[in-house]
Design a protein around this nucleic acid. Structure first.
Lengths: 215, 215
DNA sequence: ACATAAGTGGAAGATATCTTCCAAGTTGAA
DNA sequence: TTCAACTTGGAAGATATCTTCCACTTATGT
């Protein structure tokens, strides 16, 4: 359920160490589901009943922890993109894919942050985006050709819709956990019917858009 | 340009102190325009060439600084809501109001953060919301009656659109400062044409949505 | 010019988090 | 059982920011 690092010929952990590792993964998963990816290591250690040293030895970089926690979920989302790209109806594929992805994000604030950034857990998420971007671009091109999307629609617009709905999700998670569905309806309806005049956004806007824009 | 606190019978500042106060306001305004409301006091002091003590004596709470910096801008936005509520065409009033407000937010990241939160500078922003909320609600009710908005549309949906577009604005400010206009087109088109089935969101969702959902 | 009230810079203590390190405890092969 | 290697908890140093405080400087009325 929490994924394994695909590490090379590392010797297996001592039994007690392996037990602690699993305990930390479960604890970290739960904490990040409600508090996001930035939970202090100290909180994880305390909740798991271990010392911070243990967390740091097992996961020297936060990235190592994120990889171990979320790689399976990320794979799931990639497979959604693949399934979607095989839809005959491109628009149906697009909406299904976005809804599935957001459904996953709704399960965990941390996972949502991960799927909407490219800074955190770089390798993991970047590879996922590399795999999914062309699939989504293909769907959008098909949908435009089929007249299901306005002529100017681009993958960046789809990314913007994702970011918009994700923002509402993060803002409303604690008091209206389903509000994002309404926002999704609004945003997708808009994407489908908007008159998109003016220059289409650059392609590289997508990457920027998915990067953390911190303080 | 930066507004004055409406303080009571405070004795006027010594000339050098008043000069420093203005300097700090100008400096803080510029820093917050690019870095947001959370700029460290130390950065403000350094950029203004004063010590931190000076900042703290003049603005003991960050709120005092925000009030002095932004109250005029907030008043402007309130007046936009008042103007909009006088439009004959309710939908035109709504879109005009939201665009004006976002235009203001686009000028300064800090101001945008302020207008989309109710935590920061509480009194100032809360009063503004209290004034504007009924005006917007009236416009929405009128637009629904006129068939310009779907039957289920609520003020919370309008707030969600605001939050969505503001999120894109913050994420893209540095590399695509006009991308929010495209997001606005998409979101408003969606609001106008979406089929909003399901329970309408609670009224108090609006307040929550506008609150910082921090770590 | 002087006295004094007002103002100033920046050091210092508090808090939150990250990260390293090691004395002490535990495991498992011989 | 023994012991080398592995693992552990948490103290301690580093960094970033907030906030207070005071010895020293400056402005202004007389």
């Amino acid at each position: 359920m929490y994924g394994q690092r695909v590490a090379e010929p590392e010797p297996p952990l001592r039994r007690d160490a392996e037990r602690n590792r699993q305990l930390l993964l479960r604890t970290a998963y739960d904490l990040m589901a409600s508090a996001g990816l930035d939970v202090p290591y100290e909180d994880i250690a305390r909740a798991a009943g271990t010392g911070m040293g243990t967390v740091y030895r097992r996961f020297p970089q936060r990235q190592d922890l994120l990889d171990a926690l979320f790689s399976e979920h990320i794979d799931t989302v990639i497979s959604f993109a693949e399934q979607a790209s095989r839809y005959d109806d491109a628009w149906a594929g697009l909406t299904w894919f976005l809804e599935q992805q957001l459904e996953v994000e709704a399960q965990s604030r941390g996972l949502g942050e991960l799927l909407r950034s490219r800074n955190q857990a770089t390798a993991l998420v970047r590879r996922a985006h590399e795999r999914m971007t062309p699939l989504v671009a293909g769907l959008i091109a098909r949908a435009v050709r089929a007249g299901q999307l306005p002529a100017g629609a681009t993958p960046a617009d789809f990314a913007a819709v994702h970011v918009m709905v994700g923002g509402v999700m993060d803002a409303s998670r604690s008091f209206a956990p389903d509000l994002w569905r309404r926002a999704l309806t609004i945003a997708l309806t808009g994407l489908r019917h908007a008159e998109l005049s003016g220059d289409p956004p650059d392609e590289n806007v997508i990457d920027h858009l998915y990067n953390d824009q911190k303080r």
